[in-house]
Simulated scan of single mutants.
Amino acid sequence: MSVRKSQKEATRQRVLDAARDLFETQGYEETTVREIARRAEVAVGSVFTTFASKGDILSQVMADRLEELYAELDRVAPHLRGNVADRLRSLFAIHFAFETRRTKLFLAHIAAAYDWTLGPSTRPYGKNPRLRQVIKDCLAEGVARGEIGADQDLDLIVDALMGIYAWTYRLAAWEGADAEEMSAVFDRQVGLLAQGFAPRVAG
């Protein structure tokens, strides 16, 4: 790697490290690019040379973190047991355990999903295709096993599950709930949702 490229990569990593800490301690909205640059000890122009926007910085912070989560999901998913609702509960329990390591950062990630100024390259919560595919694969297996009606819209169910998951984090923001407490609430919600996507019995 050339010296110039090495320096650019070092700057990029300093920006990501600084942004991760600021997003977690101050929140996404309150953090400015100028503050990120100051914390990273780089010029503001250097930040914009590397990233198009603050939203892109958050997207990359989360993408780097999520590699560890995906590795865990890939390891666990083939060994999940129980009906489709139980398998979904297990998948999301892994998510809760992972994201509550940095709860405030994940809350910032969720909040950014409602920033209407984000550019098309930014990937806030909900726009990550790999995460959606993990959930959809679990649902597709449920269809194959006859636990989900073949006429169900799996993408719609994915949206509902991701909405429930994100909304459950209000308990962390409002009440300081931990992963176990949020998982317990989510498990009950999944049970209700599963009643809706179960195959309809002809009467």
Score class of each variant (00 low, 15 high):
residue 175 E to G: 05
residue 156 L to A: 14
residue 161 L to R: 02
residue 50 T to W: 02
residue 17 D to P: 02
residue 169 Y to T: 00
residue 122 T to V: 14
residue 139 L to Y: 04
residue 35 E to W: 06
residue 92 F to P: 01
residue 150 A to L: 08
residue 113 A to I: 03
residue 25 T to K: 14
residue 161 L to T: 07
residue 140 A to N: 03
residue 123 R to A: 11
residue 131 L to K: 00
residue 39 R to S: 13
residue 168 T to R: 04
residue 117 T to Y: 05
residue 199 P to L: 14
residue 99 E to L: 15
residue 120 P to S: 04
residue 27 G to K: 03
residue 52 A to H: 03
residue 44 V to T: 11
residue 194 A to H: 01
residue 70 Y to T: 11
residue 193 L to Y: 03
residue 27 G to W: 03
residue 143 V to D: 10
residue 55 G to C: 09
residue 43 A to N: 13
residue 96 F to D: 04
residue 133 Q to H: 05
residue 58 L to G: 01
residue 68 E to R: 11
residue 108 A to L: 04
residue 29 E to N: 11
residue 22 L to R: 08
residue 140 A to H: 07
residue 179 A to N: 02
residue 188 R to Q: 11
residue 114 Y to A: 14
residue 96 F to S: 01
residue 137 D to N: 10
residue 94 I to L: 13
residue 83 N to A: 12
residue 101 R to D: 15
residue 2 S to E: 12
residue 151 D to H: 12
residue 157 I to W: 01
residue 165 Y to S: 03
residue 112 A to S: 14
residue 108 A to V: 12
residue 103 T to H: 11
residue 7 Q to M: 11
residue 20 R to M: 13
residue 49 T to G: 06
residue 160 A to T: 07
residue 115 D to P: 02
residue 42 V to Q: 06
residue 177 A to C: 09
residue 102 R to D: 15
residue 33 V to D: 03
residue 73 L to R: 06
residue 50 T to H: 06
residue 36 I to H: 00
residue 72 E to L: 08
residue 151 D to L: 13
residue 87 R to S: 08
residue 13 Q to A: 15
residue 62 M to F: 09
residue 197 F to G: 04
residue 71 A to M: 07
residue 144 A to I: 06
residue 38 R to N: 14
residue 127 K to W: 10
residue 120 P to W: 09
residue 14 R to W: 02
residue 100 T to H: 08
residue 133 Q to P: 00
residue 18 A to G: 02
residue 119 G to S: 13
residue 105 L to E: 05
residue 87 R to F: 10
residue 37 A to R: 00
residue 14 R to L: 14
residue 126 G to P: 01
residue 151 D to M: 08
residue 158 V to E: 15
residue 98 F to C: 06
residue 123 R to L: 13
residue 95 H to G: 10
residue 187 D to Q: 10
residue 160 A to W: 00
residue 181 E to I: 00
residue 56 D to W: 05
residue 162 M to R: 07
residue 67 E to G: 15
residue 185 V to S: 10
residue 30 E to W: 07
residue 63 A to K: 00
residue 137 D to K: 04
